Amino acid sequence: MPTKIALVGIGKIAVDQHVPALAASPDFTLAATISRKGEVAGVPSFTDFHAFLEACPDVPVVSLCLPPVPRFDYAEAALLAGRHVMLEKPPGATLAEVHELQALAASRGLTLYATWHSRMARAVAAAKAWLADKAVHEAHITWREDVRKWHPGQDWVFEPGGMGVFDPGINALSILTEILPQPVHLTEATLEVPANRQTPIAAQLRFTGHVTADFDWRQTGPQTWDITVETDRGPMALRMGGNVLEIAGKPVAGDADIMGEYPALYARMADLLRTRASDVDLAPMVHVADALSLGRRQTVAAFDF
């Protein structure tokens, strides 16, 4: 029988990705939602998380889709109540709080899964395999999109803990840390912060190993999610957010028209539950924390939705 799961935070990402993925999942059935405003038709809904925990002791898994700043309290409460927890990216507002959740889950024998949906893009595994025996000479990330399209009116992304352009940029970093055969670390960053906001709307990063990144949330029209790599055996590129792999300029793997990231996340969660294991890789978040620590701030034009 499918495992009952509750979805917390019925916002855009939940409606667009989590709800359809769960509806198609052979492993889970959506048994409850918890949200101040959103609901899913036909599914019992709660506005208070503790009321859900008391009313639904038979729902063993909680998937948290709410913004990162309030997420720790929900995750901690779920683990203390004996529930397994799945975290939307980024897994928290700070590294320290995620480490605390790791320790709590381990002490109680519960599964904690910090998800990185872009790692599940269709060509990422093929890119990792191709790079495994190559020497990487340089790599560059171009991740440019329109914040008004993907986070319409969501001011929390520009508040402390919202991460600004690193909210999408961390997706690129999750791919980078997955596919590179050798680890890298940040050496410098420039953060472009709107005059009326707290977090960057654009950022330029430089890492060891001749790796650079360009993140921008002001691009209208076609969106750009590319990672290019120069190796001792020619160039490689991941396009469309990791869904198309090009070798020497020619597509060789992936499919830009079939997005299976969130179904793959829930399949992975089911595997972790079967083995009572956890998966909490914080490498992408470390790069963001380093950028926010080392970055030089440049004030740019005010931004409003």
Rank of each mutant, 00 (worst) to 15 (best):
51 A>F: 09
268 R>A: 13
94 T>N: 02
80 L>D: 09
87 L>C: 02
285 M>C: 11
34 I>S: 05
12 K>R: 13
149 K>A: 12
241 G>D: 04
40 V>K: 08
78 A>S: 09
19 V>A: 08
287 H>F: 05
199 T>N: 06
150 W>Q: 05
135 A>H: 15
32 A>H: 07
146 D>S: 10
182 Q>W: 07
200 P>R: 04
229 V>S: 06
70 P>W: 01
290 D>V: 03
51 A>Y: 10
136 V>R: 07
278 S>V: 03
56 C>V: 03
265 L>S: 12
91 P>A: 09
258 I>K: 15
190 T>Y: 12
246 E>L: 09
131 L>Q: 02
175 I>M: 11
175 I>L: 03
211 V>N: 00
194 P>C: 01
14 A>L: 01
101 L>W: 13
160 P>Q: 04
18 H>C: 10
52 F>D: 14
226 D>E: 12
115 T>S: 15
216 D>E: 00
234 G>Y: 01
189 A>K: 01
173 L>S: 07
43 V>H: 04
78 A>N: 05
153 G>V: 01
238 L>I: 00
75 A>I: 10
18 H>P: 07
36 R>E: 11
290 D>T: 08
287 H>Q: 08
55 A>V: 05
110 L>K: 07
145 E>I: 10
34 I>G: 11
183 P>Y: 00
215 F>C: 06
97 E>R: 13
143 W>Y: 13
230 E>R: 13
138 E>Y: 14
186 L>T: 07
231 T>A: 13
299 T>M: 07
265 L>T: 12
123 A>G: 10
73 D>C: 05
95 L>Y: 11
93 A>Q: 09
287 H>C: 02
48 D>I: 08
233 R>I: 11
173 L>R: 02
3 T>G: 02
45 S>A: 15
156 W>L: 03
122 R>L: 13
241 G>W: 04
5 I>K: 09
54 E>T: 12
282 L>H: 04
9 G>S: 01
147 V>Q: 15
64 L>N: 07
192 E>T: 15
286 V>K: 11
206 R>P: 03
211 V>P: 00
155 D>V: 09
129 A>P: 08
267 A>W: 04
90 P>W: 05
158 F>Q: 09
183 P>L: 00
50 H>Q: 15
243 N>K: 07
